[in-house]
């Protein structure tokens, strides 16, 4: 559906860049080539997250909580527990979005499930180390106490949708600490990850059961 044509890109950002950097090595190297090599080693990923939405209209951030699971090559579950229960599941070349309605999870058919396939293509690319192949963004890397990746849109494709993305890597183990997505003045989303597990076995039912 046209209404959510940018949503796949947004979810890509939420999920995909986490994949890219989750397995950054202890080494000091922070260049894109190093990230490309390291990302190719990821088989599974899982983490909890807290998402804070900042907007001028809100006096305090709107806080959401959830978790995500990924299993190579293309299985994904991105789930919100609150305040709005929803799940995106991509598995065996099918992508579905679910919402909570009348006491159960039902398919959100207006959520652009078909368009979500784009997400998988992007993730597949990133998982094989081609994370900078997306021409919509230019990536720059900087090192202070933490490593920061800044992604800025190139061209008109993301114009008016996303201004820039900042990714913070923790000093130890190169795990992603936070992602900030700037949509406009005073409007940004911050996601803090915790309980990150890399290459831990994940039951495949996670990608099939929504309840």
């Amino acid at each position: 559906m046209k209404s959510y044509r940018h949503l796949p890109v947004f979810i890509c950002i939420l999920v995909g860049f986490f994949f890219i950097f989750a397995n950054l090595s202890h080494a000091r190297e922070n260049d894109l080539e190093k990230l490309r090599r390291e990302s190719a080693k990821i088989r599974t990923l899982q983490a909890d997250f807290v998402q804070k939405k900042f907007m001028k209209i809100l006096s305090r951030p709107l806080i959401s909580e959830g978790c995500f699971y990924y299993s190579a090559p293309d299985s994904l579950r991105w789930e919100y527990f609150k305040p709005l229960k929803s799940i995106v599941i991509a598995h065996q070349n099918k992508t579905k979005r679910y919402m909570y309605s009348e006491g159960k999870m039902v398919e959100d058919k207006m959520g652009g499930a078909q368009a979500m396939k784009i997400v998988l293509n992007e993730i597949a690319g990133w998982m094989s180390g081609k994370f900078d192949r997306n021409p919509a963004f230019r990536a720059t890397v900087s090192q202070k106490t933490n490593t920061f990746i800044t992604l800025t849109p190139v061209g008109e494709g993301m114009s008016g949708v996303i201004e820039k993305i900042e990714i913070t890597l923790s000093p130890q183990a190169g795990v992603v600490q936070a992602v900030k997505i700037f949509e406009g003045p005073g409007n940004f989303t911050q996601i803090d990850f915790k309980n990150v597990k890399v290459n831990t076995p994940i039951n495949q039912s996670v990608f099939q059961d929504v309840q």
Binding site: F10, K53, I57, S86
Partner: peptide, 15 residues
């Protein structure tokens, strides 16, 4: 009135 619509993922669709 000020209003906004956003997805669960935090993407603002309308303001």
């Amino acid at each position: 009135v000020s209003c906004a619509i956003m997805t669960a993922e935090g993407m603002v669709l309308f303001e």
